[in-house]
Design a binder for these strands. Structure first.
Length: 429
RNA sequence: GGAGAGGUGGCUGAGUGGUCGAAAGCACCGGUUUGCUAAAUCGGCGUACGGGUCAUUCCGUACCGCAGGUUCGAAUCCUGUCCUCUCCGCCA
């Protein structure tokens, strides 16, 4: 959410920004409505002032006749005010409809264009391992080792749900332990968040809680939604609050389940665990001062790289193109891990994503900070980043660590949590 | 889930229809004084939006959990809602 004043003063710039983001929003129309609204607002305030003056004078009226006359005058003024206010409300509704579509500004280095224009920034420390044996995908591996049961998931909850069993469970827990320990060492506050959140919070973070296109499950008869990411709950933690400058930056890492309807994703090629309705995610989140957010964003990206380097997974880092950014993001980096079993000969698949949302979410959630000595408050900057999305990390591990004999070598950093070095060889019959 | 009580400025806490944006105390900031790990005293001390001077200022509007309603006028009355506390019930 951009500052309204800023939009009025920079109509062309904001319109250009909408264009490179592929967002259809009539910024000029918004400016027109907003300017009109401001003018009318002043008229309303003037009517209020007069009405207030009349009310105050009634106590000093000499007699009943004068009192009645003043009351009438007051009634009249308030009526005028209400009528004008109704006009304002109509205009504001139209203006807000446009306003809510206007995305955050875009980092100057963000590549302009659509999905295919995202720029590769770097590769991971581990190179893709050539596989000289028939490569299995994570589903085949999962089936043979009794790790993943999609049919069972479908039976009890439908397509896109799954059971994890045996070493998959140990790996899931290991990944959580590993990520949390890693982030705690980096000064993040480990946080287990609610898996449900109010509509207001969901919206403030930038998700649309209800409607045909929504990615969010909502609870019938309650203003509650299953979170699609801990970003929602972590971001909402300080909604409506004013923080002290010295508190910042605040770095949190959250564990939550993530629930996604994946509406509109039907038919998109995605086997197995890649696109599911529920998974566990360790999420990084930061509230920072405005001049700290860019460094923090790079820091988040570096942490994600470090995590996947430690796991021994090959990946590439993308600077996501303008047309592929969500509304709140000013800049976004994705890590795409190499998944040997994906597609016909292996493909990269997204495993993490980190966004700098600058003050966009903070405005919607009303999270500000105050500076010692100075008057007034300013909006904080917010950032989020995936440490580990377990289901996708699992795909990358199973597929990259598979051996010629069908066994899966557990990444070294996870061995102490899993309790073994290898998920056994497949016994052929 | 049932019954009660309550949500006021950074904190404590007055205020049940009209000079209340809100007493008082604490905390904080500035001055004075005595002095020297402190006390006394005086003054100041919310936020947002809009407007004028665009400089240290001034004016207006709004805000007493949130949203509505009654009224010329609401922190104060009414309705809904959220939250907190206490008791009961239930339960991992």
């Amino acid at each position: 959410m951009l500052d309204r004043r800023f939009i009025l003063d920079n109509v062309q710039l904001v319109q250009e920004n909408c264009d490179i983001r592929g967002v259809k929003a009539d910024v000029a129309r918004f400016a027109e409505l907003e300017t009109e609204r401001r003018g009318m607002q002043q008229e309303v305030e003037e009517l209020s002032r007069q009405a207030n003056a009349v009310s105050k004078s009634i106590g000093k009226a000499k007699d009943d006749a004068e009192r009645e006359a003043r009351k009438e005058e007051g009634r009249d003024l308030r009526e005028q005010k209400d009528a004008k206010q109704a006009d304002i409300d109509r205009i504001a509704a139209e203006a807000n409809a446009i306003y809510n579509q206007i995305p955050n500004l875009t980092h100057p280095e963000t590549p302009r264009g659509g999905e295919e224009d995202s720029r590769e920034l770097q590769r991971g420390a581990v190179e893709v391992r050539p596989m000289t044996f028939p490569v299995l995908d994570h589903l085949e591996l999962g089936e043979q080792h009794k790790l993943i049961d999609l049919e069972g998931g479908a039976r009890i909850a439908g397509h896109g749900f799954y059971f994890l069993q045996n070493e998959a469970v140990l790996l899931e827990l290991a990944l959580q332990q590993f990520a949390i320990e890693f982030l705690v060492k980096e000064g993040f506050v480990p946080t287990i968040t609610p898996d449900l959140a109010r509509g207001e919070i969901v919206q403030g973070v930038g998700f649309v809680p209800r409607g045909p296109e929504t990615q969010i499950y909502s609870i019938e008869n309650h203003d509650l939604n299953l979170v699609a990411t801990a970003e929602i709950t972590l971001g909402g933690l300080y909604a409506g609050q004013v923080l002290d400058e010295e508190q910042l930056p605040i770095k949190l890492c959250g564990i939550s389940h993530c629930y996604r309807t994946e509406a509109g994703a039907a038919g998109r090629a995605s086997r197995g665990l890649y696109r599911v309705h529920q998974f566990t995610k360790i999420e990084m989140f930061a509230f920072t001062l405005p001049d700290q957010s860019e460094d923090t964003h790079n820091y988040f990206r570096d942490l994600e790289c470090e995590i996947f380097d430690s796991l021994g997974i090959p990946y590439r880092v993308l600077d996501i193109a303008s047309g592929d950014l969500g509304g709140p993001a000013y800049r976004k980096f994705d890590l795409e891990a190499w998944m040997p079993g994906r597609g016909s000969a292996g493909e990269y698949g997204e495993v993490t994503s980190t966004s700098n949302c600058t003050d966009y979410q903070a405005r919607r959630l009303d999270i500000r900070y105050k500076t010692k000595g100075e008057k007034g408050t300013q909006f904080v900057h917010t950032l989020n980043g995936t440490a580990i999305a377990v289901s996708r990390a699992l795909i990358a591990i199973l597929e990259n660590c598979q051996q010629a004999d069908g066994s899966i070598v557990v990444p070294e950093v996870l061995q102490r949590y899993v309790g073994k070095e290898r998920i056994g060889a497949i016994v052929s019959d």
